[in-house]
Nucleic acid binder design. Structure first.
Length: 278
DNA sequence: CTCCCGTCCTGTGGGC
DNA sequence: TGCCCACAGGACGGGA
């Protein structure tokens, strides 16, 4: 569930804590060796130069590591939490730090969907989504021309937005919110959305994510900030989880369907499916 | 290459 | 009341 606003909140709390820290030891705990924890030992002895974010990935550039362009890449998956307080269970990684306080960082991940790995020389070959990721919605480079170009796909608009290719950072919750905002049916083919609608969609992506970042994200169940806090955007949700409740625009009861194996919430009156022509 | 679907994983909660 | 199973979902890889 952590999407851009949740990951950005974690990033902003993590940065002042561990920027400048040296990683003395990186230990896998109750987690199998494998691609999700690849090359973890390479970060031992390295200094954390910054805490950045690409979409839903945290990216920590390292210096003084085996390779000077190594990056520590973290994805919270569904249930990943980074905390200085030792969790009572489901710890996957323990980092021992030097030069900062507190000196220990824990990665807890109940469902094991998360990743915590080192990308040697910043090579994302084992991370295809990161490699193909679209522009940051809250940065420069998310213009309508780039967005429209990246939206050329015959896949349902919802599925395509979830692919991270048109824009970075959207997940199931905020995609439903954006599509409700701009009144686009989630099963419309991405390439069938008009340029005008795409312009509105681009603006809605920015405004929804900005508001959610301000609220420090949405907490549905597991998500917690580094300091243990919860996000406040849940009260602002107009579509996600509101099936059976009245649309905030037209009072029609919202529906829940499945699109691309994902639960999808929308208003069948406001969000009309574009009729196939032929 | 593109698109679709299965898989991973485990706690929760809804239904009987 | 208690048990069981379906569900939640991001990324990835395999198959068509």
């Amino acid at each position: 569930m952590p999407e851009l606003p949740e990951v950005e909140t974690v990033r902003s709390e993590l940065a002042p804590w561990i920027t400048g820290a040296t990683i003395v030891r990186a230990r896998r705990v109750d987690a199998p060796a494998g691609p999700k924890y690849a090359h973890l030992s390479r970060c031992e002895g390295a200094l954390v130069r910054a805490v950045e974010r690409r979409g839903k990935f945290l990216v920590l550039p390292l210096v003084g590591s085996v390779g000077d362009r190594d990056e520590l890449v973290v994805h919270l998956g569904m249930t990943g939490v980074i905390t200085p307080e030792r969790p009572d269970s489901h710890v996957r990684v323990q980092l021992d730090l030097e030069g900062v306080e507190p000196k220990t960082l824990y990665f807890r991940d109940v469902r094991r969907f998360g990743r915590f790995l080192v990308a040697p020389d910043g090579d994302y070959s084992g991370l295809p989504t990161l490699k193909r990721m679209g522009p940051e919605p809250l940065g420069d480079g998310f213009g309508i021309d780039v967005f429209a170009d990246r939206m050329r796909s015959r896949a349902p608009v919802k599925s395509h937005l979830l692919s991270q290719v048109p824009v970075a950072g959207l997940g199931n919750i905020y995609v439903d919110e954006v599509l409700w905002q701009v009144r686009v049916h989630p099963q419309t083919r991405a390439c069938d959305v008009s340029r005008k609608k795409l312009a509105g969609m681009r603006d809605a992506i920015v405004s929804v994510l900005e508001a959610a970042v301000r609220a420090r994200g949405t907490t549905l169940s597991d998500y917690r900030t580094v300091s243990g806090g919860t996000g406040g955007y849940g009260h602002a949700l107009a579509a996600y989880g509101r099936h059976g409740q009245p649309c905030l625009r037209c009072e029609t009861l919202l529906k829940r369907i499945t699109v691309g194996q994902r639960s999808t919430h929308f208003c069948s009156r406001c969000q009309r499916r574009k009729k196939a022509t032929s």
